[in-house]
Measured scan of single mutants.
Amino acid sequence: MEVRTIKVFTTVDNINLHTQVVDMSMTYGQQFGPTYLDGADVTKIKPHNSHEGKTFYVLPNDDTLRVEAFEYYHTTDPSFLGRYMSALNHTKKWKYPQVNGLTSIKWADNNCYLATALLTLQQIELKFNPPALQDAYYRARAGEAANFCALILAYCNKTVGELGDVRETMSYLFQHANLDSCKRVLNVVCKTCGQQQTTLKGVEAVMYMGTLSYEQFKKGVQIPCTCGKQATKYLVQQESPFVMMSAPPAQYELKHGTFTCASEYTGNYQCGHYKHITSKETLYCIDGALLTKSSEYKGPITDVFYKENSYTTTIK
């Protein structure tokens, strides 16, 4: 009895394709271990004539594949690729409408935090270190965002349907971005203890939790000093293409032309909904596939993004 075979390709990165001759009487799992086709788990399936010449994702289970996976995804987590594939199996079914010149995501599976993050990423200057993220990001900007969303979920250790947080998501993504040249110098002034300067680099240099107003941050924000008295913390120097200011959701007025974009969060910790506000020729609110415009805006804002380049204080 002759062994019926077909020729397929296996890959971990969709760049390096490895030619395989597979036995049609055995499952993919018996031949390769966990195997995925377009995100779908085909591990328990036997090869079919229609699979001839198709590319299958496999887990990096030998040295060659491990090197290829690390170079593309910059992670050695053995569960990463499987999590990416199972997320992709959902995100490829989502709709990605162009809204006001940006790629958004039609609401499904509690994905409003991903839509808000995706919209924000198209408006701030950011370059990702893992080629996987950078490639998928370019495709997302062009309207094909399924891979990018699935990668975000995998890097953030999230599953489809789980509630997510924009600030946490951005923080994970910033860790995989090139923020080497970003720098922030802060000064804390206390009447009792004097003053202390701190220099922050990388992710810490672009994120701040405690106030939404970048102007206020430049002037000074009140913080408790270690001595128990009130101290003032203010920005001395900022070198970065953008800054992200966050605070627990509270009524906040966004003035046209003073910011790049913002995240609105309605609801409580267990259950809520994100919308995205962007400042173009007027203010726009993007909620999944829905767009509304207004000249002014007041609502429960939790993150505001500002364009920056270089700032030095005039406070002496």
Rank of each mutant, 00 (worst) to 15 (best):
L17T: 09
N49A: 12
V189D: 14
T232I: 15
E281I: 03
N268Q: 13
F56R: 03
Y208L: 06
Q222E: 12
I15A: 07
L163Q: 07
T302I: 00
G288L: 00
A150H: 04
T314C: 03
N129R: 14
A145Y: 02
I105S: 01
L290W: 11
E239A: 08
Y155N: 03
P248C: 09
E204C: 06
V22I: 09
Q134R: 13
H51N: 08
A69E: 08
T10L: 13
H18G: 04
V99G: 07
C271G: 13
L283E: 00
A262K: 00
M170T: 03
Y274R: 03
L151R: 04
E168D: 05
P241M: 06
G202I: 02
G194M: 05
C190F: 04
F32S: 07
I105D: 02
G143I: 03
A140R: 01
A108M: 07
G272M: 02
F80D: 04
K316Y: 15
K293R: 10
T75S: 13
A262R: 00
D23K: 14
M244A: 01
K54S: 11
K280V: 09
N178K: 09
K219I: 11
W107L: 03
G39F: 09
K201I: 13
T192F: 10
A87P: 06
L118F: 11
E239V: 12
T211K: 04
Y84S: 02
L81H: 08
S295C: 07
V3E: 13
H18I: 08
L102T: 00
I223K: 05
I105T: 04
T266W: 06
E308G: 07
T103P: 04
L290G: 12
S246L: 01
C112M: 01
G161R: 05
T43E: 12
Y73G: 03
T35I: 08
G161V: 05
L200W: 06
K275M: 07
Q237G: 06
K307C: 14
S79T: 15
M24I: 14
I277D: 00
F148M: 13
T192W: 10
E215I: 06
F56L: 11
E168N: 09
E52F: 11
T55E: 07
T64H: 10
Q230R: 11
K293C: 15
K7T: 13
H90D: 09
A250R: 10
K316G: 15
K93T: 13
Y252T: 13
C271P: 03
A150R: 03
P130N: 05
T260V: 14
H273C: 02
P131T: 05
V243D: 02
N89T: 11
P78I: 08
